[in-house]
Amino acid sequence: MLHALLLVGVQTIVLLVVAPFVVGLIRKVKARLQCRRGAGVFQPYADLAKLFRKQPVVSTTTSWIFTATPYILFASTLAAGLLVPVFASKMPLNFAGNIIALVYLLALGTFFLILAGLDAGSAFGGMGSSREAIVASLTEPAMILSIFAIALTAGSTNLSTIVHKTALLEGIVTDPAPHLMALAALFIVALAETGRVPVDNPATHLELTMIHEAMVLEYSGRYLALVEWAAGIKLLVFLTLIANVFAPWGIATTHTPAAIGIGILVYLVKVSGLAVLIGTIESMFAKLRLFRVTDLLGVAFILALLALVFFYILRG
């Protein structure tokens, strides 16, 4: 019991600590590619600390939904993170939910964030909520199909089993083609779900383009800190998913301190690599118009479907 609690505690801390780092790293990469020096990689930590100390301003038109949402969002995102194997493939909380539960936990946060966007009564919040709703709607089918394609290759929908089996090299690399297609689909989904370019631009506050930032426009102080932190964790969850489902090598398959230490180090290297990749992509592409996002997510859906078809054809 104590052992289990300790493991869960370590994973929670890793997620909480690494999330702002990933955000900072992406910003740094983007700055360097734009020939700026940019803020330090650890700037998001300072931002969060500052926000927590600031006095929040709450709109008088809002209800308890507005103040409760940051906590619900924080809790649901972190709970989703606890279902993903981060540094060890077998975790005590894995039984709580499989990959579908993860998707729907993230949706729980989205639902309340959409409500919070509407609560303050300004047009910006409503606009963000409305757009978030359509992007989320179009993302989900591609996400479920790509997840299913991955689940098929591993013969399980439980993340820990998928990762554990892959880490021990049980038959997964035998069909790389569907695996790669599912990876591509999931990568597009990850960009859309976490509000990155080319779907949404986290760095903008321009009325006509923002989605996520418009929804959280009325937040300040500790509420904004929690929302930003949760956004960072959500990004990290998707990076972890991609890193550990498709390249779980180095993850701890046992619970010895040495294996876990190595697991954490390898994990840091993997998510840093993915963060650099996302920073590069964000610098290379322009943001799509909202109604062109359909095409991008359509591509993701087709890729996932092809992964499925190929899997069955290759297996005969």
Partner: peptide, 19 residues
């Protein structure tokens, strides 16, 4: 349990604890 699992009581506890 290896193929798929879901525990709503555990999820509810997790959500409450993390909030």
């Amino acid at each position: 349990v290896e193929f798929s699992s879901l525990s709503t009581p555990a999820l509810a506890l997790m959500l409450a604890g993390l909030a």
